[in-house]
Simulated scan of single mutants.
Amino acid sequence: MIYCNYCKIYIRDKKAKCPLCGNVLPENGRIEKAEDIFPVIPLTYERHILIRILIFISIVAIVASYVVYKIVPTNVNWPGFVLFGLLSVWLSLIYALRKRYNITKSIMWQVIIVSGLVIFWDWKIGWMGWSLDYAVPFLCIAAMLVMYITAKVMKLSARDYISYFLLGGLFGIIPILFILFDLVKVNYPSYISVAASIIFLSAIIIFHGDSIKEELRKRMHI
């Protein structure tokens, strides 16, 4: 930047005259490295009531699943599935909150990668079908939940999450294919995932329709 001796200010660009006083700027004026016009402001978040609610729900879910399992014993290890699902939710949430950029994108990649891993794990141990029956549908539901909580806690703008919210909602509808192609023995987790996705997408379209249109206009030049 060039320093104006009359106005006592620094001027961006190499101007010949000061835009304020009109005096000729010295050619050997003091030049310093200019600051960024749009400085990078790190995302911040505050403690939110949703985090406390999620902690309480997690404790209730673990206790309830263990009690039900003891009262009504079944071949399905419900406490294990509940614990695994909650751990997935919390790990995804912690990872997302630690990331400053592309938070919703990282959540989507986590769902895709973990879904592939559980399917591979199920196949390696003899294919009992639990990956498609329970794991993938509940991962989709967990992803939508983590996306919503993260967006609220981090106070993200619409442009940061709208596209990935839509992708997450559409991803949650995939379990309907498991039912149509008779790939699952237990249907209700897939039905819950599809229902949650439809509700999720409906909420986005109804309450954030204007933001979606604006983002499409910017990105697609519509």
Rank of each mutant, 00 (worst) to 15 (best):
G126Y: 04
M108K: 05
V146P: 01
H48K: 00
A34S: 11
L132D: 01
K8L: 14
S157F: 02
I162S: 07
I113Q: 05
Y161G: 01
G126N: 03
P39V: 06
W78A: 11
F207N: 11
I55G: 05
N28R: 10
S197A: 15
I107W: 07
F138Q: 01
I51L: 14
F207M: 08
I11S: 13
Q110M: 14
D210S: 12
F56W: 07
P73L: 11
D182H: 12
W123T: 05
Y191F: 11
D36A: 12
V67T: 13
F84L: 14
F138G: 00
G172I: 03
I103Q: 07
P26S: 13
C7I: 01
L201G: 10
K17M: 02
N23V: 14
P39Q: 10
S157V: 04
S163L: 07
I173C: 15
I57N: 08
F120G: 08
K17V: 06
M128G: 08
V111P: 00
V67D: 06
K8G: 14
S115V: 01
W127H: 13
D122V: 04
G116E: 07
I31E: 14
T104Q: 11
F84D: 07
F165P: 02
I53A: 15
P42Q: 04
D13H: 10
Y45G: 12
A96T: 12
L177F: 14
G80D: 03
I53N: 08
L216I: 09
V89N: 02
L183Y: 08
A135N: 00
I125T: 11
A203W: 11
N77T: 05
V146K: 04
L93T: 02
W123L: 14
N102G: 05
R12G: 01
L25M: 13
A196H: 11
S58L: 08
R217Y: 12
K70W: 13
D13M: 08
D210F: 04
F84Q: 02
R219M: 09
L93H: 05
V136Y: 03
R98D: 07
W90L: 03
I49V: 13
I53E: 06
G126C: 10
S65D: 03
W130T: 05
S193M: 03
E32H: 06
I173P: 03
Y101M: 09
A142G: 09
L97I: 09
L97M: 13
I62D: 00
I173V: 15
K70T: 10
Y161A: 07
W127M: 09
F171K: 02
Y66L: 09
A16Q: 13
W121I: 06
P26L: 15
F178E: 00
T104R: 02
K33T: 13
C140S: 11
S157K: 15
L167H: 02
R219G: 15
